[in-house]
Design a protein around this nucleic acid. Structure first.
Length: 141
DNA sequence: GCCAACGTTGGC
DNA sequence: GCCAACGTTGGC
């Protein structure tokens, strides 16, 4: 076991699907991804991988951490075989949301895909970046 | 609400 | 296979 764990970041517009709703649901199917890069990232997710949950537009902050509870499978919301989904479960909420502004200010986070490619909805995060963010989120600001 | 950036599509 | 047009996303 103990294959190396990977880290990711997914975004959602809170208007559409918020962290609060996610926690209430207990588990969700991450569907609606219609972008190849994002799709490839979904496919690379493994059970137990940790995923930063980011609110785009309204909020613009990482608000919690989720875990992959089911690896990629065919998107049930479309017959198109190209698209896949994963299941995610909330792992823990961040005490303080880590805002985009804060991420931009942190030297260690300058290489994040989030900053380089703002529009990508599922992106890889390095272990360092992951821990840095969770660190920010566990502090009172 | 606006605008810029990017990805995707379709015509050639 | 290339490139222009279009649509969508997301920050401000």
């Amino acid at each position: 076991m103990a294959a190396k764990k990977n880290y990711w970041l997914v975004k959602s517009e809170p208007v559409k699907y918020s962290w609060g709703q996610f926690v209430k649901d207990g588990e969700t199917v991450w569907d609606g991804v219609r972008n190849y890069q994002a799709r490839n990232n979904l496919k690379a997710m493994k059970n137990g991988d940790e995923v930063l949950f980011y609110h785009s537009k309204e909020g613009m902050a990482v608000v919690g951490v989720a875990k992959v509870s089911k690896e990629a499978y065919q998107d049930p919301s479309t017959g198109d075989e190209r698209w896949v989904v994963v299941n995610l479960k909330p792992a823990k909420a961040l005490k303080t949301p880590v805002t985009l502004e804060e991420i931009k200010k942190d030297k260690k986070l300058q290489n994040m895909k989030l900053l380089q490619q703002g529009r990508l909805s599922v992106s890889p995060v390095s272990e360092d970046e992951f821990h840095t963010i969770v660190d920010h989120g566990s502090k009172k600001s």
